[in-house]
Design a protein around this nucleic acid. Sequence first.
DNA 1: TCATGTGAAGCACTTCACAGCA
DNA 2: TGCTGTGAAGTGCTTCACATGA
Lengths: 215, 215
Amino acid sequence: MKDAMNKEAVPKPTVNRLPHYRKALESLLQKGLVIASSHELAREAEVTPSQLRKDLAFFGTFGTAGIGYNLRELIARLDEILGTRRKRPVLLVGVGNLGKAVLNHRFLTRSGFEVVAAIDISPKKVGRVICGVRCYSSAELAEVVTKFDTAMALLTVPPQAAQSVAEQLVEAGVKAIINFTHINLRLSEKVVVEDVDFGYILQKVAFYLDPTEAK
Amino acid sequence: MKDAMNKEAVPKPTVNRLPHYRKALESLLQKGLVIASSHELAREAEVTPSQLRKDLAFFGTFGTAGIGYNLRELIARLDEILGTRRKRPVLLVGVGNLGKAVLNHRFLTRSGFEVVAAIDISPKKVGRVICGVRCYSSAELAEVVTKFDTAMALLTVPPQAAQSVAEQLVEAGVKAIINFTHINLRLSEKVVVEDVDFGYILQKVAFYLDPTEAK
DNA sequence: TCATGTGAAGCACTTCACAGCA
DNA sequence: TGCTGTGAAGTGCTTCACATGA
């Protein structure tokens, strides 16, 4: 990767496609391939070959002219770019249904992350190990963030607690929050906040459907 | 709304912002406002005023020059555009932690949707009412889709079942699937598939953070 | 020869700036 | 006067096409 790269200079669409490339690479690898051209890779990732090459060009040169890309090598490079060469420790805050769903799913591990601790206010959960992860009290939040060095947190608390918990997380040193509540978090500009709003997702999809008819 | 509008002609970014506008409108309404200018609205939705006006222009003219937009009226228009003037019935397939999380959350109702039925293979769940929604067996899938007229389905089954269940849904007449598994569904082009991959979301965020250091 | 990496061309989205209307 | 709706200008992303290197 180009050294001292300015991440702001990389177009957002490019960043959004990187995870798709990583997945496409693993998919081809699993099919027994070792090397693939930008065409094969692009088809798997559902983009154009030029787009794939252009996207990668922001980070350096990875392929071999006349041959293509070494899959394993490119995965390693993407992991460097995404900062997931070592599994990133992630904190889960709010062990409700959604929190448990996140803990149970494999996609986080597969994608380069590991939920290393959970926080909940319920005394029934604090101190227990849930889905393989130890649950701590809210009072221990700052301590846990420091101890496990979690720069990222998944916010799956009830909406009314979201803003206050988010502030505690930032105070404790968390740099990025994946916000599963529908609350608009107001935090320092420096903190990366990614909102995951199921309502938005459904509305976006509904737009493309025919209108519902009256019965 | 412009009649017989070609939805393909509306830029994707514009469609993606519509849900944000709807939320901004409700937010201002709750603050006691009745009318708002594109500036007020745009600030709430975190876009530029021109962008807001341009986006709306794809669907007709809604404001009053010199005054601004009537909030209630614009919400109604947006609901028409998004096809959520009547609550859209949605089918939930897979009543695990994630499925239950979706059922419990309020954002779907608030956004113009209602989960009207659930499907699961577990005999412990079939026939019961879970989080206010009746659970049916997989064998009843087609029947349930027809009976409740669900054009949209939330796919929260284990990954190994995803493709086959998705095919059954399409066969039964479902037009859009929100796919929460990491499986790349291969379905007819006509079906709208929206993937929600938590792994992608985390990778995207991780890109903007400093690399993890070796300890 | 074959496929990458990359300037140049093309396209799409955003922002500007103002005419027109309340 | 104040704000919308919109052509025109500007910006940024995507696609093209080819020089370069294996």
